[in-house]
Simulated scan of single mutants.
Amino acid sequence: MKIGLVQNNILWENKQFNLNSSKEYFKKAKTLNIDLLLFPELSFTGFTMNTKMFQESDSYTIHYMSNLCKTYDINVGIGYIQQCTGEKAKNKYTIISKSGDILCNYTKIHPFSYSNEDKYYISGNEIVWCNINNIILSPFICYDLRFPEVFQIASKKADLITIAANWPCSRSAQWISLLKARAIENQCYITGVNRIGIGNNITYSGNSMIINPLGEIIAYGEDGTDDIIVGDIRKDFIIEVQNSFKFKQDRREELYYQLNNKINS
């Protein structure tokens, strides 16, 4: 499966402009024969805490992108803000099929408390999966990358784990190291799609990448470059790597659970 990562400059809190601009990436992706096109976290607003203004109850962004998926015959992953009951919203990442149907709909499990995201967004409680071209994928969002436990669960089924982010360039070295670690630990493909430019006075450098199950970077977005980063996800290579070094079968999950309960008791 050919995958494309949209490393773009999200115009801060200008939702309609960013939605309109997304058409150009679909057009380019079509010429590149991309099967799945992935946009960064909160793809059309940037990493905003202005949930009251941008939260959706009518799935406007989903409908808009579904039409583009059908027009260009491409599957897509996009982030947006969903309204929910109460004062807080949901930071969502949704995979939409080329026929315009929702394949999976993920809520960020770990809001970024360091920037007070948890005061505006509720925490998700589910890992989701979907199947595109016989590749099972599971989406996560940004800060989730720092929590390896959820990746271990996801990789029990997933061939590909995607991370959509607004990850600042001041911590880009950690971004790269964590992405590679998650690929090695889970023996699956990892993609990290990150924005560029400046949003809310924070600078983003991109560094989007596709990493294979050995932890090797097979496609990379240069710092600050607006582009689609393209690479192939190979099911046969995943199987080859997992069969050649079966270290995951030596995990002692029952023991880890017991040790965790013991230390917290």
Rank of each mutant, 00 (worst) to 15 (best):
F147P: 00
F147Y: 15
F147I: 10
P148T: 10
P148D: 09
E149S: 11
E149V: 05
V150Q: 14
F151S: 10
F151D: 04
F151K: 10
F151E: 04
Q152P: 00
Q152A: 11
I153R: 11
I153S: 14
I153G: 11
A154N: 11
A154L: 06
S155I: 14
S155N: 13
S155E: 08
K156R: 09
K157M: 13
K157W: 06
K157N: 14
A158S: 13
D159P: 06
D159C: 13
L160Y: 03
I161F: 09
I161N: 04
I161E: 13
I161W: 11
I161R: 05
I161S: 03
T162A: 00
T162D: 01
T162S: 06
T162W: 01
T162Y: 00
I163E: 11
I163K: 05
I163C: 09
I163S: 10
A164F: 00
A164S: 13
A165Q: 14
A165N: 15
A165V: 01
N166T: 15
N166Y: 03
N166Q: 11
P168M: 02
P168E: 10
P168L: 05
P168G: 05
C169Y: 04
C169W: 00
C169V: 10
C169E: 10
S170L: 05
S170W: 06
R171S: 08
R171A: 07
S172V: 11
A173Y: 14
W175F: 12
W175Q: 14
W175H: 15
W175E: 07
I176P: 03
I176L: 07
I176A: 03
I176G: 07
S177Q: 13
L178S: 02
L178M: 10
L179Y: 00
K180H: 02
A181H: 07
A181C: 10
A183M: 05
A183S: 12
A183R: 00
I184S: 00
I184C: 02
